[in-house]
Design a protein around this nucleic acid. Structure first.
Lengths: 163, 163
DNA sequence: CATTTATGTCAGCCATGTTGACTTTTTTCG
DNA sequence: CGAAAAAAGTCAACATGGCTGACATAAATG
């Protein structure tokens, strides 16, 4: 297993370096990437939801979130039904930036799947899920499913060719 | 691909948290884990080799390496043929600690491979290699091969049942 | 009205990266 | 031999992104 332990290290390092380089030009770092990524996936999410996903403290998140809001990458609106909540959305500027690193990371994964063989996607997906702590798997898969459904819903509203 | 991007994040986070927890008891962190891991894999490696693998600065490495040597987890001996070199070895204490996190990470991978299906190992390995930057792949695979061969050589010297 | 919840903020600390400058020891090469 | 290069180590200062603890405010809830 030692080879796979190391390959995970090397692969992940390259994988996260893609967005790192893009964000470095804006004075942002890895922490900003994560925030942008999950706000993109769950538009209108609460700050608390983001804290649960990232598993960092409010203070750590607060720092990067403030920078992203101040510089116009994220919009933070009070909730309609519960006005204590701050619901997080990407601005057009934030969407544009997010598209960049989603694209580059998707390309890397796509290439790797093609090189590793036909029908590798399902197996790789199952492997990654199984690498997650058992108690976290179901919540994680539900989170991903909810995000995917929301994308689907938005694309139906805008029409099939709008995205 | 968004689901795989996120699964990589969640899977890797759990994957590295295993050794993190073990090392936290010794006042060590992620940086110490990496050093111990690669010194275990390449006993007698030079400091320069380690710098090449980790891609961090001499100063960053120096800090954690000093702690590991001072506290008796790593032995640093002058090279026989080139006495400028410091060749790095795990002490018995370092070996014991290293065995712990190799074991826990191996168990996680083993479990994930079993759950993701028969013959998943080869495909997962190919996928991980293909996730690495093309120009880094060949050096990385050679590095892993050399480490595996050295393990093989050592086990032949000590006899097949010694390990 | 008291309590809880969601959020934000100040202050300070820690781990681990970075740059830049410099030293010592040893090897290599013209 | 002597100059240059290589391997390693060190000092100082700084950045990023984690952390704890203590509070403050607004709004919902019972």
């Amino acid at each position: 297993m030692l080879d796979l332990i190391e390959l995970l290290f090397f692969a992940y390092r390259n994988f996260v370096s893609d967005p790192d380089e893009i964000l470095h030009g804006f004075g942002f770092g890895r922490a900003h990437h994560r925030v942008l990524h999950f706000v993109n996936r769950h538009p209108g999410m609460r700050v608390t939801d983001l804290l649960d996903i990232l598993r960092i403290t409010k203070q750590s998140l607060g720092r990067v979130l403030r920078e992203l809001v101040d510089q116009g990458f994220i919009d933070s609106r009070a909730g309609a039904s519960d006005r204590r909540q701050r619901l997080l959305y990407l601005t057009p500027k934030g969407e544009e930036l997010t598209r960049e690193f989603v694209a580059i990371q998707s390309r890397r994964i796509q290439r790797a799947l093609e090189e590793s063989g036909t029908d590798s996607r399902d197996l790789v997906r199952r492997f990654l899920v199984a690498m997650i702590d058992p108690e976290d798997r179901s919540p994680t898969e539900k989170l991903i499913a909810r995000a995917d459904q929301a994308v689907e819903a938005r694309s139906l509203v805008r029409g099939p060719t709008a995205g």
